[in-house]
Design a binder for these strands. Sequence first.
DNA 1: CTGTCTAAAATGTCAGACAATTAAACGCAC
DNA 2: GTGCGTTTAATTGTCTGACATTTTAGACAG
Lengths: 242, 242
Amino acid sequence: MKIDPKNKSDLSAQIAKAIRDSIISGDMIVDERLPSESELADQFDVSRPTVREALKRLAAQNLIRTQRGATGGAFVRRLSYDEAYAQHITTSTLLLSMNAVDFETACEARFALERACAPLSAKRRTPDHLATMRAEIHRQAQPGLSDERFCDSDVAFHRALVDGADNPVLSYQLAGAVEAMQPLMNMITFTQRNRDVIIGLHTRIADALEMKNSADADEALAELTAYTLTLGEEAMEARARR
Amino acid sequence: MKIDPKNKSDLSAQIAKAIRDSIISGDMIVDERLPSESELADQFDVSRPTVREALKRLAAQNLIRTQRGATGGAFVRRLSYDEAYAQHITTSTLLLSMNAVDFETACEARFALERACAPLSAKRRTPDHLATMRAEIHRQAQPGLSDERFCDSDVAFHRALVDGADNPVLSYQLAGAVEAMQPLMNMITFTQRNRDVIIGLHTRIADALEMKNSADADEALAELTAYTLTLGEEAMEARARR
DNA sequence: CTGTCTAAAATGTCAGACAATTAAACGCAC
DNA sequence: GTGCGTTTAATTGTCTGACATTTTAGACAG
């Protein structure tokens, strides 16, 4: 670990990078304790507040955890699946909204990836996954459900589909595409007729997965893709006219 | 923006969360200036160093940028595609290595997602993408290429395949699966015979995409999946015996 | 041997100060 | 009035020193 003393600005960023590199490279293993803040301050020849800013940067990326007390300090943290999952969704959502990714692009990506999961999900889905999907379909059919709740349920349905593939790496990567689309989906007004079509397709998907019929699931997903695209286009047009 | 004064610990985390929420919710738009550190310190009733630690957390997530000088301050930052991409790869790689995801799972996810891209790539790939793929195939055939370089080239080839789909959302999500597998791929020793098989399949894929023949590409990818899995299993066995 | 108390170590926070940087405001010559 | 250099004010970056809080380990008394 060392920093460039010539570059006087952004000391805390440099220190954070130095420590981050030794974590990523594997020099420091999980649960290993970093030197104390004072020691780090001495090593890098900066003040303790500067070291602390660097450590907060790492904490923000879930790379370390800190613990107070006599045996306390900063420890390399095992990146938990749930945290990474949550962070991935946040980042994906921001990326879409801040860079004005259009509905078509996001939708295409989302369903292309979901269709990649369908064959695996047909093979491995458990009764639990099917039950979740059925429950969400039932929820989607409830009268008086707000558009936002309908979208929530839609996401939950598709998450069950993806999780059915029983591959955490797939679930993780898919989360970014499926959940990040929610703000875009929320712009759509779902009429009763829209909902009926979607629920019908969801039912076909659930049936297909239950029968382990991958081809049917794929076909229904393809139709759902096309239908969602249509709805999105209409919503965008309505928004443009207003 | 407000924080819980009862919970005395982790003030900087609370402040970071408060600011992050107003960025994510859209209350603060891109390039909007945050109050100065002193003003934030007053608002939250904490000291400036504490505010600074909070701001560093946000800076670590690329949510803000800071600028010195008279009109300086902290500004909401447009999350750039490249930064998010790089961060996504880092996180995915760490997630895989720290949680000991097995080769099979990662491999399955990677190729399932790639196969989702193939039809789109067959439709939209540009001559540029094809040229990149051909160049990487040529590089892979060079004698004396180290295993690591071979893997690098493999990743570059597949990235071109994915980018050919011309969907940034897909490219972004796929990056996590493709690039994060590199450390696992690096454990494999690629014999000349292994390489010949892989290069053959790569050539089939490139040919299929050039002909816009999506079915052929999918078939070659399926074979590549199976072959990579075999290589991975052998590598794991060899590692276990040692 | 056991329980309690104290001390030490570490992070969390604060206050105040100075340095560095940047742009706007100002003043002055032309 | 205009243009250019200078000053000045605002803001972040950093440092010093201090105190608060939390937690453990060890000393000590019973």
